[in-house]
Design a protein around this nucleic acid. Sequence first.
DNA 1: GCTAAAAGTTAGGCCCTACTAACTTATTTT
DNA 2: AAAATAAGTTAGTAGGGCCTAACTTTTAGC
Lengths: 236, 236
Amino acid sequence: MSAAREATTTETLTAPAEDYLKAIYAIGKGYGPAATNEIAQRLAIAPASVSGMVRRLADQGLLAYERYHGVKLTESGRRAALRTLRRHRVIEAYLSQALGYPWDRVHVEAERLEHAASDELVDRMAATIGEPEVDPHGAPIPTRDGSVDETEYTSLAQLDAGASGVVVRVSDEDPEMLRYLAELSILPGKKVTVKSRAPYDGPITLSMGRQELSIGPALAANVLIAPLADRGSRRG
Amino acid sequence: MSAAREATTTETLTAPAEDYLKAIYAIGKGYGPAATNEIAQRLAIAPASVSGMVRRLADQGLLAYERYHGVKLTESGRRAALRTLRRHRVIEAYLSQALGYPWDRVHVEAERLEHAASDELVDRMAATIGEPEVDPHGAPIPTRDGSVDETEYTSLAQLDAGASGVVVRVSDEDPEMLRYLAELSILPGKKVTVKSRAPYDGPITLSMGRQELSIGPALAANVLIAPLADRGSRRG
DNA sequence: GCTAAAAGTTAGGCCCTACTAACTTATTTT
DNA sequence: AAAATAAGTTAGTAGGGCCTAACTTTTAGC
């Protein structure tokens, strides 16, 4: 008896549990497996701590877990992760649009609020700012019923010289990076063209409108692009 | 050595700790002592649990605690309580004014958000709705620097027949009661006159504008009044 | 295929916050 | 003032969530 019971709909998750699910979702892009070490690193905790928590989450039917072989979200775990992700991103969008919250700090604030805000509040926030489809960094907002745009975009670091595209998303966790990107005006919606790429991880030169600038590959890797099919293409 | 150290400014309180401080503040009206049993009842936990927590809070310099003789807030505990109270009430006001959140549910939502929202967010909320001085139930909002209006008002249950006053505040925790008060239109700002009081805890008949209604003493006790000096007076 | 390194796990602590049961102190009643 | 009651405390337990240290399993290199 006592196979892992399926999580009941009203099962309330703790804040750390929600964080684990989010991390696992992010690592596996919704479906793939996540390694213990990766989860630990993402949550900045010791790998040993992950083992215990992962077991508890598996007992709740949120994870499929095989000792020594990482975890995957179950359907119910995926739903829970998307619920948290929706909260997070709606809150980010709301803070930014309704309260003028600076875009490099919405992430941290949302990180705490996502565990406290009710679905009703989140829905009201979303309604108030016109049901946004992406958060301030361009990340897609899951819908109430748990579907998300799972398009995978190319990073700026992977574009060949000559290629053009529109910035769709930037990574949201590093405030300093966000301030720098804003300074350079590399923001979701902006059109960029790769002018040249220096070899050996050298700088990437971009043109944006009449402006020309060059950035390092580490930064470029954090900028996702929807390619415009004019010349350049993706690169392995 | 090791007398209770004063709480450092940046000491981060857990959510339960903030709840204890709020409860103790409410019981002692900021300064008075609070009994273990009262704290326990207010937080809906066992009295035995309070002893342990109260000791920890005292160790942090937030409470003055003498075994078997209840607790009082220290100055630093009072500041912490007021900080949480400010968050709570600003959030309530914001939810109500900016998001059209129903007034019988703002309390519950704020109860969770108050532990997660940053000071910056709370200040932005307050600024956005014009620095309100009271929450939707009429409770005064502490200022950033920790001062509050501590006026004590008379409850409607204590007014004699003939007395008039303005509703300044209603108790905020019982959603059903709030819905009923709204239905009767007994809301902060409304003028009321006590027409008559039936003896033996009987109903109290009020007139409000051209409307006349009668309520029980339990409800009346939850409505605070700023008396208008025309005829009636307070009553023991 | 064996060994070394990497990845993951259990064991044993610790803190927080709650619980029940049993005991102590304070207060009230007679 | 003694006895009864109320209020408050300690003792022992539990679960969540984290840690370090030590051990096991898997993987990768030779």
